[in-house]
């Protein structure tokens, strides 16, 4: 069973969630829980680093959309770092490249 590891760090006051593994229907609740906890604690401007993600499905995408909606309600945002071409393609196919701010690297994501 492939796992999803989530490490949280703060860079210049912005929480960065480093994901590695698979964001699928089994692992997504873990991501949802982590995002909700941060947003409800007042840290609603999140950066999700998907550099270590090698698989995401529609449940994972839906979880990120749910996080974005929750963050937006609190005046925040979710920026995504996604250098992996295959993962980026899933965002493109589903039209979510227009919903999320997606960056190739951390420097660009944090500079916005």
């Amino acid at each position: 069973m492939a796992d999803l590891v989530i490490d949280t760090r703060t860079v210049d006051g912005t929480p960065v969630l480093d994901l590695s593994g698979e964001v699928d229907s089994y692992n997504s609740p873990k991501l949802r829980e982590r995002m909700v906890r941060l947003i409800d604690d007042g840290q609603s401007r999140l950066v999700i680093n998907m550099s270590g993600v090698d698989y995401i499905d529609s449940t994972g995408l839906g979880t990120l959309v749910g996080g974005l909606k929750r963050a937006s309600e609190k005046g925040g945002s979710i920026r995504i770092i996604c250098p992996n071409e295959q993962i980026h393609k899933v965002f493109s196919i589903t039209g979510l490249v227009k919903v999320f701010q997606i960056f190739d690297n951390e420097q660009s994501a944090l500079a916005t």
Binding site: D57, S58, L61, G62, V65, K69, I93, T94
Partner: peptide
């Protein structure tokens, strides 16, 4: 819908 949290699975399958 763009901000829907569900319903992307089957359309994805059909596209890819």
């Amino acid at each position: 819908e763009a901000l829907a949290e569900h319903g992307r699975g089957l359309p994805l399958m059909e596209i890819i």
